[in-house]
Design a protein around this nucleic acid. Sequence first.
DNA 1: GCGGAAGCGTACGTTTACAG
DNA 2: CTGTAAACGTACGCTTCCGC
Length: 333
Amino acid sequence: MGKHERGWVEATEKLTAQLANGAEPDPDLEEQGRPDLAAALAERIAADFPERTEVCHAGNSYDSLGDLVVDVDGAETFLEAKFVASGGTRANLGQDTLTQFGLFEDATAWSEFREEIGFPEDREALLRQFDDYPDDVRDWSYKSAVYDRAKHLKNVVDVSRGQNTGSRADEVLADPDATETQREAARIINEILELDREEKLAYFDHLRAAEQNPRNVETFAHLIVCGYHTADALREHFDEDLDEIKRLLAADAYRLYEVNRNSATVTDENPAELLAGFEWEDTRVEVPEDGTSVSVVTGPPGNRRRVLNIAYNWKNKFQGIQTPSMNVFVPEA
DNA sequence: GCGGAAGCGTACGTTTACAG
DNA sequence: CTGTAAACGTACGCTTCCGC
């Protein structure tokens, strides 16, 4: 959900609370929010908590977890509500999230690491090897100079929608009918892909050598599993709330509700079940020798479990070009 | 046990909004 | 305008399943 959508989301959350309390819904909120989704969620809360005495909107207040708090005779359950357009609860995070939130001590951020090893210069040198760029590609003083040229190389090898750029480059190189220009573009694409892979492996070597902060790793994992999927949400809850989250999970007092924006279907998830059997001991980020994603693992040697997978990716164009990012997945089983 | 279909997790692309 | 975060879409490719 985009940051631009906070407005209607919050209005819808507040409406949900009013409806679940059997109160008259505020017309302003009905105007700003999605009354249909609020009604669906309120109905579901009513069904799940028939003995409720009150539902409060917790808001985005920094000292409260969840979006809604259901009171049943003084016992509170915290609900995090997500309004989604399609399935999947994965998070996309900024490229430097793990170092920003102190999962590693004294480790260089990914963005900074690339600068230090001269990745941008190496990439530029590779892009400069092609000399048939159109006139409108921007000057090297713009970051977009890289994007424009990469885009052009993709056009030259003719990558179709959804096609993996590297596989297409391989096809071109294997095609006896490909032109020299196409081969040159394909070769450069592949060299940049390789450069990026090397860069990631080198960064992982760096991460592997760094000290970790187990408490921060544990906090990060809990927040992700509990539905805090944006940098802002992580920031709001990072420092203070781990113990509270663990208390709520142990007391089975925390739920995630997902409302589909199109169908108004409500599904729920109990993070406590997702984490059932986890022993929060020796929690750390496992950084593989040969991959481009890391895992948060926890538990003693005999009962080591994977909590999250975190992939280091670039969105847009192809790997090594435009938007470095981290995709977070909760492994299925 | 073999080849193809189906299922599924992930890799990575596009779109959109917004800050500066 | 440029740069970027985040939501969302989609298909690759690794299993697993299944008919033979």
